[in-house]
């Protein structure tokens, strides 16, 4: 490690230690120094990640590597306590179930629950060079289940439900021609706006799908529909982009609020 890195790192540590002690001295509550430590730690990590805006540096790398380790363990622990234990223990051990205060499920089927344990252990063998091939049984099970579940879920909700929702009555709340013409206005809640919205949805879906159909040359009427499909898709991408920008900026505002209010106390709560 370079000398300048060590000096810079030491300065950062001293600064945040001082910030912790000052915050702890001014805090109230049951354990002021512990809560001050947590807030200072969060502030340090926030600023460490922001430091990447200047350049890739050791402080950023520290936060990045810590995040990798912490998040891997976090999801493992949650998976263990919230999926493995409640689904497996009540079926394989009465004693353990009582110890963990889980209701034991006494069924003939319980013996089948050895299968996922065996397959899980086979999956872990992937770490071994010699026995790694055994993990393909677990992978086969995972892929089979995913394929089966996706086949049903996508057919039902992403294919059939989407098509059926596209078959819309173009004019909502239809009573008569006279009523329709009388209410014609450029109001956002008027029948004309609804008519336009529904026409765009129906035409947009058809034209969007035509754009994705590559088995025929996109020329003539088909080409025009395909071009309209591109425009609809461009609006979709623009909307998604706009929403992503707004989402990221709102996260940035959140982090700034944390730094200025919770850590430094500059702005009022």
């Amino acid at each position: 490690m370079r000398r300048s890195t060590l000096i810079g790192g030491s300065l950062v540590v001293v600064f945040f230690l001082a910030a912790w002690l000052i915050k702890g001295a001014g805090a109230s509550g049951e354990s002021p120094y512990y809560s001050a430590f947590l807030i200072t730690l969060a502030a340090f990590l926030t600023l460490a990640v922001f430091s990447f805006l200047y350049a890739d540096n050791p402080v950023y790398k520290f936060a990045e590597h810590l995040f990798v380790g912490v998040s891997a363990a976090y999801w493992m622990v949650l998976g263990f306590w919230q999926t493995l234990v409640p689904n497996l223990i009540p079926r394989i051990s009465r004693a353990l179930s009582e110890q963990l205060e889980l209701e034991y499920i006494d069924e003939l089927w319980n013996v089948l629950y050895v299968i996922p344990v065996v397959l899980g252990i086979l999956l872990l063998l992937r770490l071994s060079r010699k026995l790694g091939w055994l993990s393909r049984y677990a992978v086969a099970f995972i892929v089979g289940t995913t394929a089966g579940l996706n086949f049903i879920a996508y057919t039902r909700s992403n294919f059939m439900a989407q098509i059926s929702s596209t078959f819309l009555p173009l004019v909502g709340d239809w009573t008569s021609w006279a009523a329709f013409v009388d209410n014609l206005s450029l109001s956002a809640t008027g029948p004309l706006a609804l008519l336009m919205a529904n026409i765009v949805v129906v035409l947009g879906v058809v034209c969007g799908l035509i754009y994705f159909f590559f088995s025929r040359e996109h020329s003539g009427t088909f080409g025009m529909a395909s071009r309209l499909g591109i425009w609809i898709l461009m609006i979709t991408f623009g909307a998604s982009f706009g929403y992503t920008v707004m989402g990221r900026i709102s996260l940035l505002v959140g982090r700034m609020t944390f730094l200025l209010r919770d850590w430094l106390g500059i702005i009022a709560s």
């Binding site: 999926t83 299968i115 344990v117 397959l119 677990a138 099970f141 995972i142 289940t145 579940l149």
Partner: peptide, 14 residues
């Protein structure tokens, strides 16, 4: 079974 094996996959990742 799938969710149980998925936890083992997380352990494998760790």
């Amino acid at each position: 079974f799938f969710s149980i094996i998925a936890v083992f996959a997380m352990i494998l990742g760790g």
